[in-house]
Computed example of a mutant assay.
Amino acid sequence: MASLNVYSVLVVLFLTCGAVMATKDNDQIIKENNCETKMGLPCVLEAFMSIFKTKGISNKCCDELVVLGKVCHTTLGKRTLESPIFKDLNLATIIAKSIQTWNNFLALIDSPSPSS
């Protein structure tokens, strides 16, 4: 349960990282696209866990992420990685996982559901 709290804090940082830590360009993109209001916190947590940990993600959250859009997904990820909290992470690995996560979302959304 303690690890869930840690990840919740990281997700809040992901969503609310201040302008001091983000470049003006990222903040403008986020504001112009209303990126911080398009996903619910539970789905943000699932997306975060799928990128920073090896976790799955529900179809509901895949739908929310696709509505969020690739621009928001990428920009929020970049802004998160600018935080000093993540300075010791391998950025190339995290970016690759972020791209893989996005592609997995699209594959889940595009795949036909089994007929009942």
Rank of each mutant, 00 (worst) to 15 (best):
T37I: 07
M21A: 11
K70E: 15
I51E: 06
D27Y: 06
I94Q: 06
S50R: 09
K24W: 10
I57Y: 02
I85W: 13
A47E: 02
M39I: 13
D27R: 10
L4A: 11
D27W: 00
G77S: 13
D110F: 03
L81S: 09
V12W: 09
S58L: 01
T101W: 02
S115G: 09
D63F: 06
V66S: 00
I57S: 05
N34A: 00
I95N: 14
L65N: 12
Q28T: 13
N90H: 12
I94V: 15
A22T: 13
T23W: 06
S58D: 01
F14G: 12
V9N: 11
I29V: 15
S50M: 09
T54V: 14
N90G: 01
C62F: 02
G40S: 14
K87H: 10
K53R: 14
S58H: 00
D110Q: 14
P114E: 03
R79E: 11
L65K: 12
L10F: 11
I95F: 02
T93A: 12
L45N: 05
N59M: 12
K31P: 02
C61R: 02
C35M: 06
T93V: 11
V6T: 08
V67T: 14
D110R: 12
L10W: 08
V9M: 05
T93C: 00
S83F: 07
I94M: 07
I29H: 06
D110C: 03
D27F: 02
F105R: 14
L41W: 03
I51M: 07
E36I: 11
N90R: 09
P84M: 05
V71F: 05
L10R: 03
C72Q: 06
M39V: 15
C72H: 06
L106D: 02
S3Q: 12
P42K: 01
P42A: 02
S116W: 01
L91N: 14
N5R: 07
N5C: 15
L108G: 02
E32I: 01
F86H: 04
L4I: 10
V11L: 02
A22Q: 09
M21Q: 13
N5H: 05
T80K: 07
K60D: 14
D27M: 13
C72S: 04
M21Y: 13
K78Q: 15
I94R: 05
T37R: 12
S83W: 03
G56K: 02
K24R: 05
T37D: 15
L10C: 05
D27S: 11
F52Q: 03
S58E: 01
F52C: 10
I29W: 04
S83E: 04
N104T: 13
S111T: 10
L4S: 05
K60W: 04
T23G: 15
P42S: 04
K78H: 12
I30M: 10
K24T: 14
K53T: 14
D25I: 08
T37Y: 14
A22M: 06
L89N: 06
T101L: 12
L13T: 08
L76S: 04
T23K: 07
F86W: 08
C17T: 12
A96P: 01
K31T: 05
N26I: 09
V71K: 15
F52N: 04
A96H: 11
C43P: 03
Y7S: 05
N33W: 04
